[in-house]
């Protein structure tokens, strides 16, 4: 019996889909059997981020309505034979599926896969309720901005209301040089405000744009800093205890290293 994890955020554009794609590819690379569900009905995107957009025949709504079998609708990833995607319908809306139907579908998929990752749409309405319904665990993605943290706080409250307890946080697009200058909230600020457990810290990385252009998750690139961060997240999800990336080091320079050597903080 596998585990279903919903990736959510409240606010749009903070990196839910990128996070889902990277954790999914990372887990598959580590040998896990993984299925990704794009729950953003009407605005599907996980297929393009994964580079699988040309292979879609059936979608989530087709399966729920009994028009296609789950096995037929699942798209097999071209890079890993243990990674599958169930795409969202593009010409329907969130009301095409109910939370009960999602719970049944995810339950069925958990029998087949080690991990079922659900990419949640932005917002707090039915799309959110659908995406969360069948999940065992929730991951909240937030960037170090006031609007994103505020929405994350709201989502944590709504998850609690749906009886999804103890969500964990991925801080996305952190910029070490801005944190150092005091112009960006750091990890501790965010954890303290949200009172939530930390799952990952992903630095802002231009390579994410390149990887999205190509449809190849950054986690598969050994050089990408964001990819490294996502690899760490996947290892944590598999139960390993992995230390968080030391982000300040790259921007520290000579004086920073000297200070560190002499034990001066700041």
């Amino acid at each position: 019996m596998g585990e279903a994890i919903v990736i959510t955020s409240g606010k749009g554009g903070v990196g839910k889909t990128t996070t889902t794609a990277n954790i999914g590819a990372g887990l598959a690379q580590a040998g896990q059997k993984v299925a990704l569900i794009d729950a953003d009905i009407g605005l599907r995107n996980l297929d393009v981020v994964m580079g699988l957009e040309n292979r879609i025949v059936y979608d989530l709504v087709d399966v729920v309505e009994g028009f296609a079998k789950l096995k037929t609708a699942l798209i097999k990833d071209k890079r890993f034979e243990n990674l599958y995607l169930l795409p969202a319908a593009q010409t329907r809306d969130k009301t095409a599926v109910s939370p009960e139907q999602m719970r049944d579908l995810v339950g069925e998929m958990k029998e087949e896969f080690d991990f079922v990752l659900i990419d949640c749409p932005a917002g707090i309405e039915q799309g959110f309720k659908n995406a969360v319904a069948g999940s065992d665990k929730a991951v909240v993605v937030a960037t170090p901005e006031v609007s994103s943290v505020r929405d994350a706080d709201r989502i944590i409250g709504l998850l609690e209301a749906e009886e999804k307890h103890h969500p964990s946080l991925i801080v996305n697009r952190i910029r070490p040089s801005m944190v150092k200058k005091g112009d960006m909230m750091d990890i501790n600020d965010m954890i303290e405000i949200l009172a939530i457990e930390l799952l990952g810290v992903v630095p802002d990385d231009e390579f994410i744009v390149v990887s999205t252009n190509r449809g190849e998750p950054a986690v598969l690139n050994p050089q990408s800093r964001a990819g490294e961060a996502y690899r760490n997240v996947t290892r944590r999800l598999m139960g390993e205890n992995v230390p968080f990336l030391k982000l300040e080091e790259e921007s520290q320079g000579f004086i920073g290293r000297l200070r560190k050597m002499m034990g001066i903080k700041g």
Partner: peptide, 21 residues
């Protein structure tokens, strides 16, 4: 700087979250 913008962000967040919560 004492006026680092992250301090402003944290203070504003704290206030807005108290009302939200």
């Amino acid at each position: 700087r004492d006026d680092a913008s992250k301090e402003v962000a944290k203070e504003r967040l704290r206030l807005v979250l108290v009302h939200d919560r």
